[in-house]
Write a protein that binds this DNA or RNA. Structure first.
Lengths: 251, 251
DNA sequence: CGTATAGTTGAGCAGGCTCAACCTAGGTGG
DNA sequence: CCACCTAGGTTGAGCCTGCTCAACTATACG
């Protein structure tokens, strides 16, 4: 059974999290390419293009024509969706190896902005369609990743609908740590490039409420903060307990 | 640009909403079969099995091995996910023509229960995999539907994170009506087989809050109730205005 | 060292939850 | 045929979590 924590977990993973090497990008881990043989990789590399992106810069905007599909090779990004009245929500976060902006529709349904400096590898969408025809296994892989992502979204729906503020923040912190560990991070201190506001928009909370939850965890000795973007999980089981909906309001 | 109302809208549509005829099921509208030619339909019908389901009966449970994929041919179903501590959420609703329980994983991540009497058409999952190999266009169709569903889930996430109680209920009512119209419903009165509790679990609200929102709409003359499961939208623009995040807390 | 951005903390408020009473409709059995 | 029973729905009163508004602190960067 999948826990709601896995919700956030998989939302962190985006489309594609297995390690591989994209010749052109030179990145260690590129989910998009994972199921391909050398010939296919060559095929793809010939058409892909590497771009550097600054912190707070957009990779693409909501409503842009979906001409390209991107692979994030370095840095952390957030996906945002805005309402007509200006209200905004963060749909998810993306890490190196994740795919950005793959959609069957004509426009991007959300925007992608970098939280840190980074790099993306850009591939023309029509080119990708050709690759699908040439390497059907790739399409199958996309379907599986998409279903995984869907399951993750459903868990996040559960979290937003049923979790208290502290439960959501705990789930977020644990899944952030796990996402980094899955990408090879070692050591107790993790990167937290998202601001309180980013986290709040992802978790359906205000930045003040996120701050209070983080402070509460700190005062309980569950976490330790290192500078403005470093965090250490001291009592991970406690956080996991909260973040998986195991007790508190238990039935 | 897609509005959050479309969120709920597409969550209502599930996987597959185009009309077609599945020989075995005899249903008018079966999304699963839509892109197939006659030979393929024959192929599928030979292995599918029709089942009648009672109100409140489960089609499958969360955690069940995912042996079958189902097409809902008659009736309305809800998809539910439960937490270790017993808290529960409704992930979405499904209507005739929608696909139930398609997943790449070994177990169903959520359960499906009927709200009304109905019928499902059951197909062995390994059989579906074979069909994918034989008719690749089907796999592509699943990918598109899955991405559409994913976009819908993201909109629902936005709604849960950013919408007030009345906004969520308004969005739900409009999308319910639209889902039925898209399936050929005519006339001003729609079916509302979901209880206040079902709606609340879908919208992240208590049943009392849903009831109060419905009463408020009724008192404003926006809707009229007909018996226990009929509802008429009198002032649809007002409901749409609320449900798409156009004003109220406008920025 | 000064400025801007991010974070913390407090006080008061309010939207939605809890708990509880009551209403209504549909089904059932005497 | 009608009284009862039950599941669903409505409405009210009070409370609590998380939001709002505001002041203040800490960190990063030029």
């Amino acid at each position: 059974m999948m826990h709601p924590l896995d919700a956030t977990r998989a939302l962190m993973d985006g489309l594609g999290s297995e390690a591989n090497v994209c010749m052109k990008c030179g990145a260690r881990s590129v989910g998009l390419c994972a199921p391909l043989d050398v010939a296919a990789l060559d095929d793809m590399a010939g058409e892909s293009e590497r771009l550097a992106v600054e912190p707070r810069e957009s990779v693409f905007h909501q409503g842009d024509p979906a001409r390209f599909v991107y692979t994030l090779t370095e840095g952390m990004a957030r996906l945002t969706r805005v309402l007509p009245d200006g209200r905004q929500a963060v749909i998810g976060f993306r890490f190196p190896g994740d795919i950005l902006g793959f959609t069957p529709s004509e426009e991007h349904a959300f925007g992608a902005e970098m939280l840190t400096r980074g790099n993306v590898c850009r591939l023309d969408r029509r080119r990708l369609e050709q690759l699908f025809r040439r390497y059907p296994v790739m399409e199958r892989r996309f379907l599986d990743l998409c279903m995984k992502e869907l399951a993750a979204s459903q868990d996040h729906i559960l979290a937003l609908g049923r979790f208290s503020a502290e439960e959501r923040v705990a789930a977020f912190l644990v899944s952030l740590a796990e996402a980094q560990e899955r990408r090879g991070h070692v050591g107790p201190v993790f990167d937290l490039p998202a601001t309180r506001a980013d986290m709040g928009e992802f978790l359906g909370l205000t930045l003040e409420t996120v701050s209070r939850a983080v402070s509460a965890f700190r005062k309980r000795g569950w976490i330790r903060l290192h500078g403005h973007s470093g965090i250490e999980l001291i009592d991970r089981p406690a956080l996991i307990g909260l973040g998986t909906g195991e007790g508190a309001h238990a039935a």
